[in-house]
Design a protein around this nucleic acid. Structure first.
Lengths: 346, 346
DNA sequence: ATCTTAACTGGAAACGTTTGCTATAGGGAA
DNA sequence: TTCCCTATAGCAAACGTTTCCAGTTAAGAT
C-alpha cells in the first residue's frame, strides 16, 4: 500500500535520456547514440563505457523520438472487419506473434462491420504513422478505399480480400476448393436439396465459396436451386431468420452449409428450435474451422484452413514489403474434413 | 541546402506537414497548430482559413511528433498473460473499444505465460512511452514486478491480480462468491467427493476460488479432501493428466470443477476418454463462463462474470488514473448459473 | 620528417509538433 | 489625445533522438 521511496530521485522525476547518459559517461550525445544502436564507427572502449552507464542509469530509449527522427515506427496497424468473429482473434494473435518476433508492434482496431468506422480506423493509424497496414476490409467497394489503400508511405496487405486496382500483397484462402470438396461429398451421398447461408458477396470469401458451391453442382450436372441460398448477412440474426425460412421449405433441405461464424450460430439455433440434430435429421457443414469447435463440437464437419498460418503469412508479406520486395499474393489451401455432422439428412 | 529536386520528391512521396499548411495559408506555424488543436486564442477567420487549407492538402497530424512534444502518446499497453485463453480475447476487445471511444489506442502484447516474455513486453511498452499499462500478470511474485509496476511515468491497472505493495488500480472478480455458491449447491445435492482442477495459486483468481471452495465446505461442516484438488497448471495437458488421476481415485469424484479454460479442455477430454457424460455419470461446473460455451455447450453450468464489463472497467480505471484521480479497486461480482451439466453424478 | 589515411569522436542540424513569450493593432477609458 | 487593454499572431525554443559533417589523433606510407 505504501509507495516506496527506496529508489533514487530519478525514478520520481523524469525519465533518463540519452543526454544524461552522455553527461555521466562524459562523451558526446552522438557517441551514445552510435554506441547503443550498434553503429560500426565506435571503439570497443567507448561502447563498453556507454553501455555500462546506460545500464546503471536504467536508460530506455524513447521510441517516439526515434520514430520521429528516423521516420520509422516499427508499428503495424491491423484493421479487422469484425472482431466478434473468433476467427479474427486467432488471426490477429498469430500475426502479432510473428510481427513481434521481428521487432514490430501491432495496433489492432476493430471496424465492427461498419465502413465509416473502418475509414476512421485507417485515418487514425495513418496519423500514428504506422509502417504498414494489414486489413480485412468490411467491403471491397467502400468509397474510402482509394484513399486508404493507395497511400504511398505505408505498406498494405489484404486479408482475404480482392481489390483489383490496388497493387498490394494479399493472403487469400482457396475457399472454393474446400467448398467444392464438401458439396461434392454431399452430392455423392445423394443430397440434392443443399442449403447455403452466408454473408454478403461484397467480399472475396463469400464469392469464392459460391464459386466452389456452384462448380460442384455443375460438375455433377445438377441444377442449382437458387432459393436454397441465403446470401447477405454475416450476423447470427440474419442466419437465424433465413435458416428458419429454409427449414420450412418444401421439399426441406437435407443438408445445410454455414458460411462462417455468424451463420454457424444462427443455423444451429434454428436447428435446435426445430429439434433437428446435425448428422441425424440433417447434414451440416461449417465452411470455416472456427476455433471453438475444437473444444466441444468435434463432431462438426468443416472446411479447414490453417488460420494461424494466414496470420503468420500476412505478417511475412508485410515485412517483405517493408524490406522493399514487390507485392505478392499468397494462397492458403483449404480442405474438407468430414465428421459426423455431415452424415444423415436423407 | 536542399535542392528543388528533393522538394519535388518530398511533395510526391512525403506527407503534408503543418509547415506546408502554414505556407499555403500564409500564416505562421503556430497559428496552424492552434487553429487545428482548438486553442482559444485564434480568430474565427484564421481558424476557417487554416481548416480549409488543411483539408485541401489532406493534412493529417503526425501523432509521433505530437507525442514527442507533448509527452503524451494516447496509447495504452495491454499485457496479457496468455492469449490462448479466449477469455482474454473478449477482455481485450471490450477494453480496446472503451479506450478508443476515448481517443486512446491499445497495443496488445502476449506473454505466453512466461515471466521473461512479460518483462520484455513491459520494457517494450515503456520504450514506446505508453500512457498506461493494463496487465494480467503471469505471476504475482515475478522478480521483475518492482521495476515494471512501480514506474512513475505511466499509469498501471491490474486485471484480476493482487500485488499488495503497489498502489495501482485494479479490477478484481469476486470469484469466491460464485464458487461458494456452486460448491454449496453440489454439497446440498449430496456430493461429498468434489474434485477441483485449477491453475497455480501464484495469481489471485486461483487463490480466491480456493477460498470460496474451502469456505463452502467449512460452512457445511464437511471436511475438505485435499487429494481431490489439483492445483498448479493452467494448460490443458496439466488438467488432462490430473483429471485422469482423479477419475481413477477410489471413491471416484461425483463432481468436478474446472478452474478456467485449460482445465475445462483437459477435463472434458479426460471424461470423454472414460466415457463419462457431464450431467449424467458426473456433475461438472466450469468456474468461468468461457465465451465459446454460449455457442454450443449451453448445457454447462458455470460461474458467470461479465467479462466485457471487466475490460470496460479496466479501461475506465485507466482513464481515471490518467485524469489524475486516485487509484481504486473495482470488484466485479460472480454468480453460479446452474444448467444440466451439474446434475447427476450420484 | 611529412603526408595520407583510417578510425574515431564531437557538434549541430534535422524530424513535426506545441507552447511560452513578445509584438502588433485596434478599441475603449481617462 | 494618450494610455492601457484585449485579442490575435508570430517567433523561436523545446521534446529525444539520428545522422551528416568536420575535426582530432595516431599510425602507416613515402
Amino acid at each position: 500500500m505504501t509507495s516506496d521511496k527506496s529508489d533514487d530521485a530519478r525514478s520520481i522525476n523524469q525519465r533518463v535520456t540519452i543526454r544524461e547518459v552522455a553527461a555521466k559517461a562524459e562523451v558526446a550525445l552522438s557517441s551514445v547514440s552510435r554506441a547503443l544502436s550498434g553503429h560500426p564507427d565506435v571503439s570497443d572502449e567507448m561502447r563498453k563505457r556507454v553501455k555500462e552507464v546506460a545500464d546503471e542509469l536504467g536508460y530506455e530509449p524513447n521510441l517516439v523520438a526515434q520514430s520521429l527522427r528516423s521516420g520509422v515506427t516499427r508499428t503495424i496497424g491491423f484493421v479487422v472487419r469484425d472482431i466478434n468473429n473468433p476467427m479474427f482473434a486467432l488471426l490477429a494473435r498469430s500475426c502479432e506473434h510473428e510481427l513481434r518476433r521481428n521487432g514490430y508492434s501491432m495496433i489492432l482496431v476493430n471496424s465492427d462491420g461498419n465502413i465509416e468506422n473502418e475509414n476512421r480506423n485507417f485515418s487514425l493509424l495513418r496519423r500514428r504513422r504506422v509502417d504498414g497496414l494489414i486489413a480485412s476490409l468490411v467491403s471491397e467497394d467502400s468509397p474510402y478505399l482509394r484513399k486508404n489503400l493507395a497511400g504511398p508511405t505505408e505498406e498494405a496487405a489484404r486479408l482475404d480480400r480482392e481489390v483489383k486496382w490496388v497493387n498490394a500483397s494479399a493472403v487469400l484462402a482457396d475457399h472454393a476448393a474446400g467448398v467444392h470438396e464438401a458439396v461434392t461429398h454431399l452430392i455423392n451421398k445423394g443430397h440434392r436439396e443443399i442449403a447455403f447461408v452466408t454473408g454478403s458477396n461484397n467480399v472475396y470469401p463469400t464469392r469464392n465459396r459460391l464459386q466452389g458451391f456452384t462448380k460442384a453442382f455443375e460438375d455433377a450436372n445438377i441444377k442449382i436451386q437458387p432459393d436454397l441460398m441465403a446470401i447477405g448477412g454475416f450476423d447470427a440474426e440474419y442466419a437465424l431468420s433465413h435458416a428458419r425460412i429454409l427449414l420450412h421449405r418444401n421439399p426441406a433441405p437435407t443438408a445445410i452449409l454455414a458460411g462462417g461464424h455468424g451463420a454457424l450460430m444462427g443455423i444451429s439455433r434454428a436447428l435446435k428450435e426445430k429439434n433437428l440434430t446435425m448428422g441425424k435429421e440433417i447434414a451440416f457443414i461449417a465452411l470455416d474451422q472456427l476455433p471453438y469447435l475444437e473444444v466441444f463440437s468435434d463432431n462438426i464437419s468443416t472446411v479447414y484452413r490453417d488460420t494461424e498460418a494466414i496470420g503468420r503469412e500476412a505478417a511475412r508479406l508485410m515485412l517483405e514489403g517493408i524490406e522493399g520486395e514487390a507485392p505478392r499474393v499468397s494462397i492458403i489451401e483449404t480442405q474438407f474434413i468430414g465428421r459426423t455432422s455431415s452424415q444423415g439428412g436423407l
